[in-house]
């Protein structure tokens, strides 16, 4: 451990610049944004909203004109969801390694080439080869420090060990659903609790856990034929719901709110109903 500490990057207090994440909860915990030249780890189980936070960070970086890279070990990215989240896809380099070793090498290569924001997402558990491997993380932290890149590791559990300057923990609180007692039911979003598990240079307990709400914005679709992959969501601690009645509408395949099932005539003259009401499917064909 002593040797490892010799190779640790400097504390975040010496980092001059921050990369704003444009996500109030995250920026508040990290005192302004993701540190440049440091490795930050975001830990969260599946359905905790971790991937939504990652895409939010990529959206912030690319909208500021920075080039960003996503090393996607789990091959999880849905480009349509990313675009809906605000990611400028032409500025995003998407790498899909199949092994963790290749992911490390790819991350180092893109940092060295000058990318300002690099995200290594380890996907869902199990992550093969992640246990007991501190050396590559320390190396990545050093490379990020040398090139001033913001490196975020998104992992289902702690992996980077002492290499991380800051560790954020995202606890799952559950999904929010709209509709009950026979009413159309829709996935409205996810609730989580984001806390700062470690931050080198700051005393623990500066901030208690903050509530992260994802979901509440309606997806705007030009047609109600087929749902897209992205759920609607809102963000931030205490962010207002989208609708005046306080309800939220979301869900990967929900049609536009209040939209009626649309019809079109197929080539054989039959009526084709493309999408149904909010909950129960009404897709079918009738003469």
């Amino acid at each position: 451990m002593g040797l490892a500490r010799q190779h640790l990057p400097k504390s975040a207090g010496t980092v001059d610049e921050l990369l704003p994440t444009a996500q109030p909860v995250l920026d508040r915990l990290l005192a302004g944004g993701l540190a440049r030249g440091a490795l930050t780890e975001l830990v969260g189980r599946s359905s905790s909203g971790r991937f939504s936070v990652v895409l939010g960070l990529l959206a912030a970086a690319t909208s500021a004109g920075e080039a960003a890279a996503l090393i996607d070990l789990g091959d999880s990215l849905d480009p349509r969801s990313a675009a809906a989240s605000g990611v400028e896809l032409p500025r995003l380099l998407w790498l899909r390694p199949q092994r963790l070793k290749n992911a490390w090498m790819a991350a180092e290569a893109v940092i060295v080439s000058g990318f300002a924001c690099v995200v290594l997402d380890l996907g869902l558990p199990p992550v093969a080869g992640s246990r007991g491997s501190e050396g590559p993380w320390l190396r990545l932290a050093r490379v990020a420090q040398a090139h001033g890149a913001s490196l975020l590791i998104s992992s289902p559990y702690r992996t980077s060990g002492p290499a991380a300057t800051a560790v954020l923990s995202l606890a799952r609180e559950g999904a929010r659903w709209r509709g009950a007692n026979g009413a159309p039911r829709l996935l409205a979003g996810l609730d989580g609790e984001l806390s700062l598990a470690k931050h080198r240079g700051r005393s623990p307990g500066d901030h208690g856990p903050l509530r992260l709400r994802i979901g509440a914005v309606e997806v705007d679709r030009d047609t109600a034929v087929i749902p897209t992959g992205a759920c609607a969501a809102g963000v931030g601690e205490g962010s207002p719901p989208s609708h005046s009645d306080g309800s939220t509408v979301a869900g990967g395949f929900s049609p536009r709110r209040g939209a009626e099932p649309s019809r079109s005539r197929s080539r054989n003259g039959r009526w084709r109903v493309h999408a149904g009401a909010l909950s129960r499917v009404a897709l079918g064909v009738r003469d």
Partner: peptide, 18 residues
């Protein structure tokens, strides 16, 4: 010139299983 990032939409996203 430097421009501030757009405020995050915070959309719930799907982690695709391929």
């Amino acid at each position: 010139t430097m421009r501030p990032p757009r405020r995050g939409l915070g959309l719930l996203t799907v982690r695709v299983l391929r």
